[in-house]
Design a binder for these strands. Structure first.
Length: 409
RNA sequence: GGGGAGAUACCGAAGCGGUCAAACGGGCCAGACUGUAAAUCUGGUGGCUCAGCCUUCGGAGGUUCGAAUCCUCCUCUCCCCA
């Protein structure tokens, strides 16, 4: 199967400027392509991982990815698909985010021997001279057309500031710059980037008289229930283990909707398609096996094999018996802490199973708290040394949140 | 620059002097049912030393026994006109 066909098969292709041309180009020889990342947060999340998977697939097929850090464009803010002006990030914040993105990407792409590049668009955007830029680049953009674009529709109703209106032009300019510097001929991005990508393709074709540049978008990933993939109530599913532990990362994938499993296996793992097909045939409770594979594979990709094993082992200990209890989320406390005893709700709050003491109190009063798998009947039931089993106390909040307290001394 | 509308808890949105920790919907959490899934039903959803107290309704002041509700100023957003 050709490289493009595989991407398609795995559900990575939404729109392409010229499908046949892109297919041919990718089948024929190394293509230099780019994906832009706006460092708007302190870590990439699994939404950023999605286009990264595409980059990995293409690099494996011998193509050359360019990761473009949008430090410059992030100073502007992309209005596409947004309902209101995004809060402006400080320049230092953006820089530090960009560093985090750069570090994270090392795990996914091979940068040695220029097999992949990482560049920062601030490098060229910050040097632009306003008047020259308007004369050389700005004149190729039709305001009428930009206003008609779907991406701006929503914003036109609510208001769009001039700074944001420039985003597309700058992103288009990125493509031009990359074409000139690195003969980059393909831009890939999320479907919400379609307008921006087209603008770039147009600009390069116009100014460089090139017909070989193309653009492609990946579908917007949503969950079966319609939410944006990778968003949880507590925030995004971060890649940085400091922001989301490998254990919780693993759990995220275990808890996805049954209906999403096949789709996610295809785009977030490198398992062969026939293997995925057989996992997808599982039914009922067996689907958990497929979820386990999914969770393990993605965790391995992001956090490494050892962390994936640990997360899986901790999850087994918490949910199905077996596994390694020490890999469950754990807090260490001195034995003295439990004599004479500490009220359950305080303990739940202290280890993070509840956001506040009031929250813990409610949880327990509603019967959602357990010590050593036994329901706690009173919110202030003291937890004492007598609750220690094999040097630890197991707490549980609801069905899914487990916490182990290692009692020292 | 002129005129108008508005800013309420995670989000949307009521409230227009006390009975407001603030209706309703969504989200989220818990319970029941289950498979760490979905759907459904039930309860919950500011903090605390929890039948009580404290801090919230863009910000700062003020009027009042009492303010999310009235007044003044400020900040921001949207709409119309230029």
């Amino acid at each position: 199967m050709g490289c493009f066909e595989e991407l398609k098969e795995r559900g990575f292709v939404a729109q392409v400027t010229d499908e046949d041309a892109v297919r041919r180009a990718l089948d024929e020889g190394p293509v230099t392509f780019y994906v832009g990342f706006d460092p708007t947060a302190a870590s990439p999340h699994i939404g950023n991982l999605y286009p990264t998977m595409v980059m990995m697939h293409l690099q494996r097929h011998g193509h050359r990815p360019i990761m473009v850090l949008g430090t410059g464009t992030t100073m502007i803010g992309d209005p596409s698909g947004k309902t209101e002006l995004r809060q402006m990030l400080s320049v230092e914040q953006i820089r530090s985010n960009a560093d985090a993105f750069r570090r994270a990407m090392n795990r996914f792409l091979h940068f040695e021997e220029s097999r992949a590049l990482c560049v920062d668009n601030a490098e060229w955007l910050l040097q632009l001279s306003y008047i020259d830029f308007l004369r050389d680049v700005g004149r190729h953009f039709s305001v009428n057309r930009m206003l008609a674009a779907e991406a701006y529709k929503q914003r036109l109703e609510r208001g769009l500031s001039f700074i944001e209106f420039n985003y597309q032009i700058l992103q288009a300019y990125d493509f031009l710059e990359l074409y000139r510097r690195e003969t980059c001929t393909l831009q890939i991005g999320g479907d919400d980037q379609w307008g921006n990508i087209l603008a770039g393709v147009d600009l390069v074709r116009r100014l460089e008289n090139s017909t070989t540049v193309h653009g492609m978008t990946t579908p917007l990933l949503t969950t079966a229930s319609g939410a944006k993939m990778g968003k949880t109530a507590d925030g995004a599913v971060w890649i940085d283990p400091e922001l989301l532990s490998p254990y919780d990362f693993f759990q995220y994938w275990i808890n996805v909707d049954d209906r999403d499993v096949e789709k996610l296996l295809k785009c977030y793992t490198f398992l062969p398609l026939d293997e995925i097909a057989s996992l997808a045939r599982l039914e009922g409770a067996d689907i958990r096996k497929a979820k386990d594979v999914l969770a393990y594979e993605v965790t391995r990709l992001v956090h490494g094999e050892a962390a994936a094993e640990e997360a899986r082992s901790g999850a087994r200990a918490a949910f199905s018996g077996g596994g390694d209890v020490s890999q469950m989320p754990t807090t260490s406390l001195p034995a003295a802490h439990f004599s004479p005893g500490v009220p359950a709700y305080e303990l739940f709050h202290a280890v993070g199973l509840a956001g506040s003491k009031g929250d813990a109190r409610r949880l327990l009063q509603q019967g959602g708290g357990y010590v050593n798998e036994e329901r706690i009947e009173a919110f202030d039931r003291p937890i004492t040394g007598e609750d220690v089993r094999e040097g630890a106390i197991l707490l549980r909040a609801g069905k899914k949140k487990h916490h182990r307290i290692q009692v020292e001394g």
